[in-house]
Deep mutational scan, measured.
Amino acid sequence: NQASVVANQLIPINTALTLVMMRAEVVTPMGIPAVDIPRLVSMQVNRAVPLGTTLMPDMVKGYA
């Protein structure tokens, strides 16, 4: 099973992602693959992402 990107903290809307905000976890359903974490750094979320939420492609501006 491939790990997905999960929020390590509450990420407010329009926040630029940093490594500290994300962790890799095997979850269902799968979200953004953990291998993409370096690519996500400095991209912004388009909604508030609660702690423990799996990041989906439509939550990150410019990802999809």
Results as ranks from 00 to 15, higher is better:
residue 1 N to V: 15
residue 1 N to S: 15
residue 1 N to F: 15
residue 1 N to M: 15
residue 1 N to K: 04
residue 1 N to R: 03
residue 2 Q to P: 15
residue 2 Q to C: 15
residue 2 Q to L: 09
residue 3 A to W: 08
residue 3 A to S: 13
residue 3 A to G: 08
residue 3 A to F: 09
residue 3 A to T: 11
residue 4 S to D: 01
residue 5 V to W: 02
residue 5 V to A: 08
residue 5 V to R: 01
residue 5 V to G: 02
residue 5 V to P: 01
residue 5 V to L: 04
residue 5 V to Y: 01
residue 6 V to C: 15
residue 6 V to G: 01
residue 6 V to Y: 03
residue 6 V to E: 02
residue 6 V to K: 06
residue 6 V to I: 13
residue 7 A to I: 04
residue 7 A to W: 02
residue 7 A to L: 04
residue 8 N to A: 15
residue 8 N to I: 07
residue 8 N to M: 12
residue 8 N to S: 15
residue 8 N to T: 14
residue 8 N to Q: 12
residue 9 Q to T: 11
residue 9 Q to H: 11
residue 9 Q to V: 07
residue 9 Q to C: 06
residue 10 L to P: 08
residue 10 L to A: 06
residue 10 L to R: 11
residue 10 L to S: 11
residue 11 I to F: 01
residue 11 I to M: 06
residue 11 I to E: 01
residue 11 I to N: 00
residue 11 I to R: 00
residue 11 I to S: 00
residue 11 I to Y: 01
residue 12 P to S: 10
residue 12 P to Q: 12
residue 12 P to H: 11
residue 12 P to N: 11
residue 13 I to T: 13
residue 13 I to D: 06
residue 13 I to V: 08
residue 13 I to L: 09
residue 14 N to I: 02
residue 14 N to D: 09
residue 14 N to H: 13
residue 14 N to M: 07
residue 14 N to T: 05
residue 14 N to K: 06
residue 14 N to G: 10
residue 15 T to A: 09
residue 15 T to D: 04
residue 15 T to H: 09
residue 15 T to N: 09
residue 15 T to Y: 07
residue 15 T to K: 04
residue 16 A to C: 06
residue 16 A to G: 04
residue 16 A to T: 07
residue 16 A to I: 07
residue 17 L to Y: 01
residue 17 L to E: 00
residue 17 L to I: 07
residue 17 L to P: 02
residue 17 L to W: 02
residue 17 L to N: 00
residue 17 L to A: 00
residue 17 L to C: 01
residue 17 L to F: 02
residue 18 T to E: 04
residue 18 T to G: 04
residue 18 T to L: 07
residue 18 T to D: 03
residue 18 T to Y: 03
residue 18 T to F: 07
residue 18 T to Q: 06
residue 19 L to I: 05
residue 19 L to M: 12
residue 19 L to Y: 10
residue 19 L to V: 12
residue 19 L to E: 04
residue 20 V to H: 09
residue 20 V to A: 12
residue 20 V to R: 07
residue 20 V to M: 13
residue 20 V to T: 11
residue 20 V to W: 13
residue 20 V to Q: 08
residue 20 V to C: 10
residue 21 M to S: 06
residue 21 M to E: 02
residue 21 M to G: 03
residue 21 M to H: 06
residue 21 M to V: 03
residue 22 M to R: 00
residue 22 M to L: 15
residue 22 M to I: 07
residue 22 M to V: 08
residue 23 R to N: 04
residue 23 R to V: 07
residue 23 R to F: 03
residue 23 R to K: 10
residue 24 A to G: 12
residue 24 A to R: 05
residue 24 A to W: 06
residue 24 A to L: 13
residue 25 E to K: 04
residue 25 E to P: 01
residue 25 E to L: 04
residue 25 E to A: 09
residue 25 E to F: 05
residue 25 E to M: 06
residue 25 E to I: 03
residue 26 V to R: 03
residue 26 V to I: 10
residue 26 V to K: 03
residue 27 V to K: 07
residue 27 V to R: 07
residue 27 V to Q: 14
residue 28 T to A: 10
residue 28 T to V: 09
residue 28 T to F: 05
residue 29 P to V: 12
residue 29 P to D: 08
residue 29 P to F: 13
residue 29 P to Y: 14
residue 30 M to I: 14
residue 30 M to K: 04
residue 30 M to C: 15
residue 30 M to G: 04
residue 30 M to D: 15
residue 30 M to Q: 11
residue 30 M to P: 09
residue 30 M to E: 15
residue 31 G to Q: 02
residue 31 G to T: 01
residue 31 G to H: 01
residue 31 G to D: 00
residue 31 G to E: 01
residue 32 I to G: 00
residue 32 I to H: 00
residue 32 I to M: 03
residue 32 I to T: 02
residue 33 P to K: 08
residue 33 P to C: 15
residue 33 P to Y: 10
residue 33 P to F: 04
residue 33 P to G: 13
residue 34 A to R: 03
residue 34 A to Q: 11
residue 34 A to E: 15
residue 34 A to Y: 08
residue 34 A to I: 07
residue 34 A to N: 06
residue 34 A to H: 10
residue 34 A to W: 11
residue 35 V to W: 08
residue 35 V to Y: 07
residue 36 D to T: 06
residue 36 D to P: 01
residue 36 D to G: 04
residue 36 D to V: 04
residue 37 I to Y: 02
residue 37 I to N: 01
residue 37 I to P: 00
residue 38 P to F: 10
residue 38 P to C: 09
residue 38 P to G: 10
residue 38 P to N: 08
residue 38 P to H: 13
residue 38 P to A: 13
residue 39 R to I: 10
residue 39 R to H: 06
residue 39 R to W: 11
residue 40 L to F: 02
residue 40 L to C: 04
residue 40 L to P: 00
residue 40 L to E: 00
residue 40 L to I: 12
residue 41 V to G: 03
residue 41 V to I: 11
residue 41 V to T: 13
residue 41 V to S: 03
residue 41 V to M: 08
residue 41 V to Y: 08
residue 41 V to D: 03
residue 42 S to R: 14
residue 42 S to A: 15
residue 42 S to F: 14
residue 42 S to P: 03
residue 42 S to C: 15
residue 42 S to I: 03
residue 43 M to F: 12
residue 43 M to P: 00
residue 43 M to Q: 04
residue 43 M to V: 04
residue 43 M to N: 07
residue 43 M to Y: 14
residue 43 M to T: 06
residue 43 M to E: 04
residue 44 Q to M: 12
residue 44 Q to V: 12
residue 44 Q to E: 05
residue 44 Q to G: 05
residue 45 V to I: 08
residue 45 V to Q: 00
residue 45 V to A: 07
residue 45 V to C: 05
residue 45 V to E: 00
residue 46 N to K: 14
residue 46 N to G: 14
residue 46 N to I: 09
residue 47 R to A: 10
residue 47 R to W: 07
residue 47 R to T: 09
residue 47 R to P: 02
residue 47 R to F: 10
residue 47 R to M: 11
residue 48 A to G: 09
residue 48 A to C: 13
residue 48 A to W: 07
residue 49 V to K: 00
residue 49 V to E: 01
residue 49 V to M: 06
residue 49 V to Y: 02
residue 49 V to T: 09
residue 50 P to W: 14
residue 50 P to Y: 13
residue 50 P to C: 06
residue 50 P to H: 08
residue 50 P to S: 12
residue 50 P to D: 11
residue 51 L to S: 13
residue 51 L to D: 10
residue 51 L to A: 13
residue 51 L to Q: 09
residue 51 L to V: 10
residue 52 G to H: 11
residue 52 G to T: 03
residue 52 G to A: 12
residue 52 G to M: 08
residue 53 T to G: 11
residue 53 T to V: 13
residue 53 T to A: 15
residue 54 T to W: 02
residue 54 T to C: 04
residue 54 T to F: 02
residue 54 T to I: 15
residue 55 L to C: 02
residue 55 L to N: 01
residue 55 L to T: 01
residue 55 L to P: 01
residue 56 M to T: 11
residue 56 M to H: 10
residue 56 M to W: 07
residue 56 M to R: 05
residue 57 P to C: 14
residue 57 P to A: 14
residue 57 P to Y: 14
residue 57 P to W: 12
residue 57 P to N: 09
residue 58 D to H: 06
residue 58 D to S: 10
residue 58 D to I: 06
residue 59 M to I: 10
residue 59 M to E: 03
residue 59 M to G: 03
residue 60 V to M: 06
residue 60 V to H: 01
residue 60 V to E: 02
residue 61 K to V: 11
residue 61 K to S: 13
residue 61 K to F: 08
residue 61 K to A: 12
residue 63 Y to K: 03
residue 63 Y to W: 13
residue 64 A to D: 13
residue 64 A to C: 12
residue 64 A to M: 14
residue 64 A to Y: 03
residue 64 A to W: 03
residue 64 A to K: 11
residue 64 A to H: 11
